[in-house]
Design a protein around this nucleic acid. Sequence first.
RNA 1: GACCCCGUCGUCUAGCUAGGCCAAGGACGCGACCCUUUCAAGGUCGAGAUCGCGGGUUCGAAUCCCGCCGGGGUCACCA
Length: 469
Amino acid sequence: MGGAVRVRFAPSPTGHLHVGGARTALFNWLYARHHRGAFVLRVEDTDRARSTDEDLAAILEALEWLGLDWDEGPPTPGYRQSERLAIYREHAERLRAAGRAYYCDCPPELLERERQAAQKRKETFRYSGRCRDRGLERGALRLRIPDTGATVVNDLIHGPVTFDHGQLDDWILVRTDGTPTYNFCVVVDDVTMRITHVIRGNDHLSNTPKQILCYEALGYPVPEMAHVSMILGPDRSRLSKRHGATSVQAFRDAGIPADAMVNYLARLGWSHGDQEIFTREELIEFFDIKDVAASGAIFDETKLEWLSHEYLKRQDGAALATLALPFIRAAGLEPPEPARLAPMLDTLKERAKTLVELVAAGRFYFEPPAAYEPQAAATYLTVEGARRLEALITRLEAEPDWSAAALERVYRATVEALSLKLVDLAQLSRLAVTGGMASPPLFEMLALLGRDEVLRRLRRARGVAEGRG
RNA sequence: GACCCCGUCGUCUAGCUAGGCCAAGGACGCGACCCUUUCAAGGUCGAGAUCGCGGGUUCGAAUCCCGCCGGGGUCACCA
């Protein structure tokens, strides 16, 4: 094997990091880490108005959140296309001097007419080559490509894909105003950054033969190519905002842990036997582009949430606290100290698919219920309910031990004395303490909440029940 | 329209390179039951794909060949 693997992810900062882009970045990162190579981040900001620093910052932040660290790239200078204009100019000049590229001054209107004429003839539009041998000194610089023959893209995922030169044309490398075009920048960048494997979206496959011809004109070896399928929406068209959330940040804000997101994205289009859940180390160890599927994949939020839940369930309370803290604060709640918070979250993790749900399910831990579920209140907060609460409160007040086990004993004894079933008293207490009918196991929850707070809520519910009666 | 890619349960996929181990396996979701102080979690079981369609080749095809259909992508002096 020759040199080390060098791959790159090249987003253009014209929006948030899309999950499709994130998956492409992930595959590149995994490939680099697997081969102990380099993951390069390059910013394709040749775009005039559309690129913004805010978008770039958001993309970098999303990559960092996912844990996809880059070995080369911003903030080190030299990884933004806007900083590399001199390099493109130099390569363009080389091609021109060698006769591999030529200037063209065909007016856009003429080109447009020819394009429509070709369309009418049911043919692929192809630049006529009118300016090929006119020896012009200015204009748009076009790459001279062969009229006959074919270029084969040896794709690592799709196998050999042949493009007839009759379908390709002398494309523009540099515009009349002197700015390089995207396809040209990509080639020059990949060459000068010594990229060995280009792993990118399937939407670039059609551009690849043009780029290969450019590599050849420049006299450079062509890197390995791998075109990853698109991520689709439920209607099988490319996933876009009209399908719902598509930015990585949206999922982060929805409370999906980064590791779950990474696992989901990795498994979308890539597989390793029947395994579904992977540690990051396993991902790095097992990942190989040859196991990446060639077909498009629909983004399934339900499965993402399942994975998110699996990750949450595997965390211990302390780790959960770290993950959940920002979400607790975002909900406007005051988190208790870590020693109390951790065991609380432990009781919640089985019943929440995301961190947002975790906080919602455990809201009662942080503040008294603002209201009682109406239907449950109608059933339980009655005269009889008040009587039961009274009996319960009396016994609890007499109980010095506030452990879950002791609380259970008190409840069972009370139930016995009142000739009730445990479920009756449990649901009544749940309603009083949480405001609803679903919660973590009652006795643990009461123990965690503490004697004073529980008694306070029980008494309040008793008051409401009496008021209703 | 031209070119290119793709096509196995609703979804993600295994299997396809070396045809029989596949009357197609796993996972999500869905249904039932068990467990149970609620909701979950967990356990068990189940429904669900004639492998896009049609021809071939072969004793035998999801796997090989041909044709078709469907979906998607690319066709800019955008990226």
